[in-house]
Design a protein around this nucleic acid. Structure first.
Lengths: 346, 346
DNA sequence: CTGAAAGCGCTTACAG
DNA sequence: CTGAAAGCGCTTACAG
């Protein structure tokens, strides 16, 4: 009669139940969960199995309360409209839920990104996820050393000197796509660099490597620059449309730029891909909402974010063994209708 | 020597200190904090004063843990590519972080959405956020009563009979947009219903109400149906293009459908908006990535998700006073170039 | 390497 | 109306 029933909302699986099933103490479960190296491999396996079987999810509130800290991962985003934000959040959320961390998000002001990063870093969080182009901005500004929390870059266009990152290999992606174009017979290729972002340089190197293998070069006059937004693409495409001699294929820096090219080329009286082939980058939704649909490079952003979050959690837990490495995630070349089988004969 | 020092991260003010200063028990502080009516006015004042003096902030983690562990909110999504997912996650994340709840996400299989909802609901979560079209599917299937957790619909196209919801008023939005068209002189208006989704019916009512006020009617032959995706829009637009007599303005059911219309109308030799005006719905990114940019209706999804999450948390905490109400969030008519100043003179 | 015990800051259920 | 006690699910610090 001394027991007091307590409302228990649900069949929530607790650490005790996992411990029970695995035949260990809750301490050991906790150690496994926190990746403490001291646990014997066989026990660890048993615990992980039990967690899996029971579909165990750590209770963030309890963890936060008990550990008095280190449970918050921050993610800064610029804009809710961003087509890639959903995928990044999904990945980050999965990894943080798995480890019982809480994901805290905040938008930043494009006119003072670094200030916002600094303010966010000092006040409320234990680790920071940096999407592009923030990761590059932070890295180039050199403020990362002053920010005293671990951070990691998501899909930067190049390796960062002072911040670890998870990314696709842009150089290889550009190389492969260029190779595809060469195989289809294209020789005169146009390339759109992205300003500021290092991706421009990295991809450019890949394009040049592929061309060099075929004894070709990328002509200076076919290297342009545009911000990766539709409007900038429109302006550039307009200019290209008026050129006397054009490339037979164009590697746009983003799907938005590519979509703008497709649009302008039509208005210009050119057929895509018969007269000119267009390649995008990112495989965002617009890639299949225009005609012809874009051949493009897909970055698996959800996976990138998930891996980056896992890595960040490791860094938060073991600050000493924090190395500045890069994790590569495989990209995918998506072939659709915007690249012709053969180039225009000139 | 029996005391064990415990790391205490900061100079956090606890409830005990407030209770101490106010000369009451922690229980009373808690009661004041939770607005329990039973506390005597003078004590309440003393407690509030102490809280203020010490700058007391309740610890959300402790509160979540103590209040019986109801801390998980689930969100089901179909696809990482969804342009609206980012906004929904941002809103849901903000509200859940504020109350110390955890957001758990999971993707569902389009071929068996109801099974996935049921499985998710029974196993791991305390409340469920239902984005469209899931909220409508769940409501129409009638399974909500069997699912024993609170849930709420995000931006359904109509009020749901058995599930509370946060949404814009589609009828009014459709009314306002139609009104806009009427003001610009349009009389022959085409309308695209979305199949399955109730939005079709609800918006149709708004369109008809506006037309009726001008003594006009929506002609049967100008009411079509299409799924809210680009491809379906293409097929429908093709059909419309071949009609002998066309409306001067079309209310597409989504931006994707509208974008498809714009595309096909061009190929059809018609100018948008001079020959035909097109109105989208949702204000997704594609709205400004085509030419002309779409006049459309914006649903503030981040705000909708945030409000819905707050409401859901209330429902989880007070299951008894759970009413099936609807919270309306203001929408916004975004005027861009796809609607002409005046209709074609026929 | 492992686990029994204490404690994180709050709320619930109860007795007064 | 009020408060002493138990408990939420986890981690820390310690002893074995």
């Amino acid at each position: 009669m001394t027991k007091r029933p307590r409302r228990r909302s649900k069949n929530v699986v607790t650490m005790a139940e996992v411990a029970n099933l695995a035949g260990v103490s809750t301490m050991t479960v906790s150690n496994v969960l926190n990746n403490k190296p001291s646990v014997l491999p066989e026990r660890r396996r048993a615990v992980l199995e039990a967690m899996d079987k029971l579909n165990y999810r750590p209770n963030v509130a309890a963890r936060a309360l008990a550990s008095a800290g280190s449970i918050r991962i921050g993610l800064l985003y610029r804009d809710v409209e961003n087509a890639l934000l959903g995928a990044m959040l999904v990945g980050a959320l999965k990894a943080s839920a798995r480890f019982g961390f809480q994901l805290i998000i905040r938008s930043y002001d494009e006119t003072k990104p670094l200030d916002d990063v600094a303010a966010f870093a000092v006040s409320e969080i234990d680790g920071l996820l940096l999407p592009p182009p923030l990761c590059e901005l932070v890295s180039f500004s050199g403020i990362s050393a002053k920010l005293s929390i671990p951070m990691i870059g998501l899909a930067p266009g190049t390796n960062l000197s002072d911040i670890p990152a998870v990314r696709i290999d842009d150089e290889v992606a550009a190389y492969e796509v260029t190779h595809l174009l060469l195989e289809k017979g294209h020789r005169r290729i146009g390339f759109v660099k992205l300003p500021g972002a290092m991706v421009g340089q990295t991809r450019l190197a890949g394009v040049q490597r592929a061309l060099a293998e075929h004894g070709e070069v990328l002509e200076e006059r076919f290297i342009w620059e545009a911000r990766p937004i539709y409007e900038a693409g429109l302006a550039l495409a307009d200019m290209v449309c008026k050129m006397e001699e054009r490339p037979t294929a164009i590697l746009a820096g983003s799907d938005d730029i590519a979509a703008a090219f497709v649009n302008v080329m039509h208005r210009c009286g050119l057929h895509v891909p018969e007269d000119i082939s267009i390649v995008g980058f990112d495989d965002t939704p617009i890639a299949v909402k225009i005609w012809p649909a874009l051949t493009t490079v897909r970055q698996p952003l959800a996976r990138i974010a998930e891996q980056a979050t896992e890595r960040l959690i490791q860094m938060i837990r073991n600050p000493e063994q924090y190395t500045n490495d890069v994790i590569y995630i495989p990209h995918e070349i998506i072939q659709r209708a915007s690249v012709s089988e053969r180039p225009l004969q000139d």
